[in-house]
Each structure stands twice: as structure tokens, then as C-alpha cells.
Simulated scan of single mutants.
Amino acid sequence: MNQKSWAAVDDYIVDALFEADPVLEAVIAANHDQGLPAIDVSPAQGKLLSLLVRIRGAKRVLEVGTLGGYSTIWMARALPADGKIVTLELDPHHAGVARSNFERSGVSERVDLRVGPALQSLSALGAENAEPFDFVFIDADKPNNPNYLSWAMRLSRPGTVIVCDNVIRDGAVLDEDGHDANVEGARAAFSFIGGDKRLDGTAIQAVGSKGYDGFAIAVVE
């Protein structure tokens, strides 16, 4: 098996299990046209996030790393009518594209998009005494994974589900002596989850159109 085969299987999954979705296709096209990096989750991964939100019965979702809002839309669609997703984005241009995508997708009323350094936005949420989140998706700058996980814990409650993306990195997570900051961030996520007795976690290795990577998933005890 190779990247071409993995991507073909992803295409098969989408063809077999998903209905055509011109809106989400337009979102990906808009992200490309606006020069955003092609690092969105895949459709299969977006659907997984949507299902996890539904399985958890989440009403409040926190996302660290909006990009163009593709994953945000998947999760926002899974929320009940009174649900809300707070999503954090550093880059004003990315945030502007995301806002247009939220309008295009009809989810703007469920999305609270905050622009600026994520740690500042998280600190502001803490200062607001924000109601705890039911589901947290972390997909931003990897070296800050431990900081984001720490804030996720502060803003969660027992039963909150935390998902951290890009933790396998083509298997480079095994490299103890490497100097890749993203790999070090992935390893730090494992260390955080494994070292916090309040978390019960695992990880899922994944192959597909995004290559060889995976998610760490944990539940707050």
C-alpha cells in the first residue's frame, strides 16, 4: 500500500457512505482560491469529528485552529439548535475566509470565531468563566500542544472529549532524538495525556488522502 492507494480508499469511503455536499466542496475550493494551505482534515476525518460530537451529545465545542473553517463546519452541523462552537484562529486572512465559509454553510449563528493568538483567546475564555466545553478539537501549532491541552483541561468537565490532531506524523513520533518542533509537539501531547490521571486516552493511526498520521483521543475523568 502507498499514498495513492490510501487516497483511493478515502475516495471509496466518501463515495460509499457520504451524500454529495456541494457546500463543503465550495468551502474547500474557496480555501484554495484564497491561498490557504491545504491542511484541512479530510472529508472522512471531518465526518469522524461530526460523529464524535453527536455521540458525545455535545452542546459546547472548542476548536483550537480554524484555518478556513472546514472542520468547524463539520462539527457545527452536528450540534443541536442551541449549540455553540468557539473556534480560535491566529491569522486574520484565514479568519475572514472562514467567516465567509460559515455564512455559505449556514452555521454562522452557531460559531463564535475569535481571532488572535490562541493562548490569549483561551486565557480570555478562562477570565470570562466560560461554561465548560463538552468537546475540544486541537489542530493548531503543534509545539503548543501541551499548553492547549492544559487549557482544554481548565475549560472542561468530567466527560469532556478531547481530540488532538496530527500526532503520528508519518511515524516520526517515535524519534526521541529529533529536532522537528512538530514531532516534539506530538510527543508532548502523548506525554501530557499519559501523565495526567484525569485523562483516559488512546490514539488512532490513520492513513488516507492526508497521508500517514492520526488523532489522540481522551476523555476527562
Rank of each mutant, 00 (worst) to 15 (best):
L199M: 07
S156K: 01
I193H: 01
G185K: 08
M153H: 13
F190L: 14
N182W: 06
S156E: 14
V163L: 12
R154F: 06
H179K: 13
D200K: 13
R169V: 05
G159I: 03
V173P: 08
F190R: 07
R154I: 06
A181Q: 09
R157M: 13
V183P: 12
E176L: 15
V167L: 06
R198N: 11
R154Q: 14
F192H: 04
S156D: 13
L174A: 13
I162N: 01
R157K: 15
V167I: 10
H179R: 12
A152G: 12
F192C: 07
G171I: 03
H179M: 09
G201Y: 00
R198H: 07
E184W: 02
G185R: 07
D200L: 09
A189L: 15
G201T: 00
I162M: 04
S191Y: 05
G159E: 01
F192V: 05
D200I: 04
S191Q: 15
W151Q: 10
A189C: 15
D177M: 12
S156Q: 05
E184V: 06
I162T: 05
A188E: 11
G159K: 00
N166V: 10
G171S: 04
R157I: 03
C164K: 08
S191M: 12
R169C: 09
D196I: 01
A189V: 09
G159P: 15
A172H: 08
S150W: 10
A186D: 10
D180R: 07
R187N: 09
D177G: 09
V163W: 02
I162H: 02
G194C: 06
E184C: 08
A188V: 05
S150P: 02
V163Y: 02
R198T: 10
E184Q: 13
R154T: 14
C164M: 11
D175N: 09
R169Q: 08
V173A: 05
